[in-house]
Design a protein around this nucleic acid. Structure first.
Length: 810
RNA sequence: GCGCGGAUGGCGGAAUUGGUAGACGCGCGGGACUUAGGAUCCCGUGGGGCGACCCGUCCGAGUUCGAGUCUCGGUCCGCGCACCA
């Protein structure tokens, strides 16, 4: 008797992934299978995956898994009949690349080109994704950043890009300013150095003007909840009141504070000005200026709040309702940049104010019943009933807020107000490796935009591109680049020497992909109308608030300008899970990076893709291990064998047709929800059955074909090869080739109903699906096993659920 | 501290959203074929008990005919935010 293997090897060669994958890579490229016809597609589908930053190390498994998952979705849409555009590119500018280039002593452009080549040729082209390389973008190439500069100019012309002085985050290690979003717990996200506050003149994009729109727009988006929540929190809308206090003993007459707890106004026993307040000196009596400034200069940057740090400003404020005279303090625990930069401190009801008051022996007055401020306990921060609030005692917090605001309004001393945590986007970077901000500073005309026809402002070749640390970009040293004539008056002028933040590059790249073949516009109107918004965007939640929020902001601006057809760029967004190794994020510093190249070489892209998708739910991520890859090898060997041995022409076997239709439905439903692991489980189950039938000589060709089509998005190479070997028409990936299922056939026909007595399973009953409750009850009570258990007792209740269960209660 | 997830066999994970817990795979055990096999194929596999059965989804209560799924309280883990007044 022959073994299956013998049989197989007698009839066809063994599965050789190297040959199969090389063959189809070549054919697809020659035929241009994945070159997207961008003009006039019938059902365009823009399938986008976040593009990588090309590092020297190459893509690791933590990158590849999300990419494979995105491609599976795209391939499925294509099989369903859409014209799928799946582009890829490189986010090649930025501090990270520059730091690496410095480390190895090469020019960032050289390092970048080498990395991009490696990414594209050795990695991305091997994983079996259907990227359309005719539309690659590279943000560090002049033909791209020219348009990044153009985008900046559009914002500038609308007054949304402004240069202004302000307190900024300065990283003393990276020697540049950082956006708020690049600071984590007071530290630089890149090098973990504690950031300092500096006062510099910088370029900002006024995203805060769109705070409400960006918040409201979230509701209509089909995005992962986690991502939406993060954006919601980051925008951080709060409802409160602005209250004016008159001042005494300093240069200012009055100050406005922002609070969400207007109900606690009567508990305000002092004011606190943020230590980084831009007009701090106006709060200080002249005779105390020296002392306060000395104190302020001694402040050290800190990543943790210290509520005891503060100084008495020496001036006083008048309580707007009681007229009481209360002291003004200065402390770093109050943020100069949020609200008005000054708060009314209510120590009895706020944790921070409480600690500060305790540290400086300031007065504490309880204004919400419940707490005990005389004892040395914690503050009473919850809402409740007002006390010690002349004329408002007994009101609830909610009512108190309204009534107190109303009173303040009558007195012209306050009004309700909305504030956002979101701040303007600081885009200046005092570094080399980025697009120069296209502005010329003229002593006569001020900041003048570079004329659009003069773009790009090329990044000059520079031997020494190291950051200077002086708050000025190294570009400032290139005299013949910096010195230009003013586009308006022709007089001598100087170029802006800061470059823009990498996140500006990536905030519009999805608009460029469909239009890479246009040299005269950033994006072509018609192409954009056809392809935008992006239908499906997949990426990591690490970009939930930066990249995704910036992109939404720019899109809204472009929409207002009539440059794009819709205000939101990404209709559907799904955050993939994070792949860890030994429980930690894959990173060079942990030394736990898994290189996909060797796996692809050893097992092939098909096996690897399948295995990665089978690790766990795509959207939750998981821990990478290769312990089970053998199972996937076996599965594909089985597919290889059955596709070439299942030759029965039968298409009518009722049971097997139902099984086939059910499979199509399950896989189809699962892919739609990115449930790849369960889809693969069904395919395995089906393959096992068909393989066993094939070994008995009963395998059906129609089953094999269905299996190949359903498997095609996951394992594009082997399915294409087998499709050809079976002599089926065209490509297994041909648009529209996805099999249809008949919902009636996909429905299960016979079901097993569990019979339980008092909730414990005692027997089973196989019946036609849809058998009604009465029938189920009757059948269940007749079962010998059940009658025996009942011993003649009358059930007090019999619950029957169609197709599921009968529960007999005694 | 606040917000959002999560906890299921030896392991990764399923479970039609309140209806037979453990699909599928790894591992393990047994068998077939073989000179041999860490190759391939088949069967078995939550724990306990000879058995009818009993116990099992982080812990503790509750709702329900019925709870992995819902409610309340707690423990642990992951992610995000973190002086935002």
């Amino acid at each position: 008797m022959e073994t299956a293997t013998d049989t197989a090897s007698a009839r066809f060669d063994d599965y050789d992934h190297v040959r199969v994958e090389a063959k189809w890579r070549r054919i697809w490229e020659e035929r241009g299978d994945y070159r997207t016809p961008l003009d006039d597609p019938e059902h365009p589908f823009y399938n986008l995956m976040m593009f990588p930053y090309p590092s020297a190390e190459g893509l690791h498994v933590g990158h590849i898994i999300p990419y494979a998952g995105s491609d599976i979705y795209g391939r499925w849409r294509r099989l369903k009949g859409d014209t799928v555009f799946e582009p890829m590119g490189f986010d090649a500018f930025g501090i990270h690349s520059e730091n690496y280039a410095m480390k190895i002593g090469e020019h960032p452009a050289v390092v970048m080109r080498r990395a991009v080549h490696n990414f594209r040729e050795n990695q991305l082209k091997r994983i079996g994704s259907m990227f359309d390389w005719d539309h690659e973008v590279n943000t560090a190439e002049p033909n791209y950043y020219r348009w990044t500069q153009w985008v900046f100019l559009q914002l500038f012309k609308r007054g949304l890009a402004v240069q202004r002085e302000g307190a900024v985050n300065w990283c003393p290690s990276c020697l540049t300013v950082l956006a708020d979003e690049q600071v984590e717990q007071g530290k630089c996200e890149r090098c973990h150095t504690v950031v300092e506050t500096r006062y510099l003149r910088q370029w900002w994009l006024l995203i805060t003007r769109y705070a409400q729109q960006l918040l409201d727009g979230l509701d209509a988006l089909d995005w992962s909840d986690s991502t939406r929540t993060m954006q919601h929190n980051w925008i951080g809308r709060s409802q409160g009141a602005l209250i004016r206090f008159d001042l005494e003993g300093c240069a200012r007459d009055n100050v406005t504070v922002y609070t969400t707890r207007t109900d606690t106004l009567f508990g305000a026993t002092f004011l606190v000005v943020g230590a980084d307040h831009p007009e701090l000196e106006d709060f200080v009596p002249r005779e105390r200026l020296g002392e306060v400034n000395a104190w302020r200069n001694r402040l050290r940057p800190s990543d943790e709040p210290d509520f005891s740090v503060g100084i008495d400003a020496g001036s006083h404020a008048m309580h707007p309702l009681t007229g009481e005279r209360i002291p003004v303090w200065i402390a770093p625990y109050v943020l100069g940049g949020y609200g008005t930069g000054v708060i009314m401190a209510v120590p009895a009801n706020d944790e921070r104010d409480w600690q500060f008051a305790k540290a400086h022996s300031l007065r504490i007055v309880a204004v919400i019943s419940g707490g005990d401020v005389s004892a040395d306990e914690a503050p009473h921060t919850r809402e409740g009933t007002l006390i010690n609030s002349d004329g408002f005692d007994g009101l609830s917090s909610a009512e108190g807020k309204q009534r107190i605001i109303a009173r303040l309004q009558e007195l012209g001393r306050g009004e309700s107000s909305v504030q956002y945590k979101l701040r303007d986007w600081l885009i200046s970077r005092q570094r080399y490796w980025g697009p120069p901000i296209p502005i010329i500073h003229c002593p006569v005309d001020g900041a003048v935009p570079v004329p659009e026809e003069d773009l790009p402002v090329l990044l000059p070749e520079l031997e020494d591109f190291r950051p200077t640390g002086t708050g000025v970009s190294p570009l400032a040293t290139v005299e013949d680049w910096v010195n230009v004539s003013c586009p308006q008056c022709g007089g001598p002028a100087r170029r802006e020497t800061d470059v823009s933040d990498t996140f500006l590059d990536s905030a519009w790249y999805f608009l460029r992909y469909p239009s890479t073949d246009f040299d005269d516009v950033a994006w072509d109107e018609e192409r954009t109308a056809t392809w935008l918004p992006v239908d499906m965007y997949i990426g990591g939640n690490e970009h939930a608030v930066r990249h995704l929020l910036y992109s939404r902001f720019l899109m809204r601006v472009f929409h207002e300008m009539g440059l794009v057809p819709v205000p939101e760029p990404f209709t559907r967004f799904r955050a993939h899970g994070i792949i860890t190794r030994d429980g930690r994020k894959m990173s060079k510093t942990y030394g736990n990076v898994v290189n996909p190249d060797e796996y692809i070489e050893r097992y092939g892209a098909d096996t690897f893709r399948l295995y990665m998708m089978y690790l766990g739910p795509y959207m939750s991520g998981g821990d990478f291990r290769d312990a089970g890859i053998a199972g996937m090898v076996r599965f594909l060997h089985r597919v290889w064998r059955l596709a070439q041995t299942a030759t029965s022409r039968d298409t009518h076997d009722a049971a097997r047709e139902r099984r086939r239709h059910r499979l199509i439905k399950r896989v189809d439903d699962d892919i739609a929800e990115l449930g790849y692991n369960t889809a693969i489980a069904f395919l395995m189950e089906f393959a096992r059955d068909v393989d066993q039938e094939a070994q008995r000589g009963e395998g059906r060709r129609v089953d094999a074909e269905t299996l190949l089509l359903l498997l095609a998005p996951f394992a594009p190479f082997i399915t294409e090869e087998l499709w050809q070997r079976m002599g089926s028409d065209g490509s297994v990936h041909a648009p529209g080739g996805w099999p249809q299922y008949d919902p009636d056939l996909a429905r299960v026909q016979r079901v097993t109903v569990a019979i339980t007595v008092n909730g414990k399973v005692r027997d089973q009953l196989e019946v036609d699906a849809g058998t009604d409750q009465d029938q189920l009850r009757r059948l269940a009570l007749q079962l010998p096993r059940i009658r025996e258990l009942l011993e003649g007792r009358e059930p007090s209740k019999v619950v029957a659920v169609v197709d599921r269960i009968v529960n007999i209660v005694v």
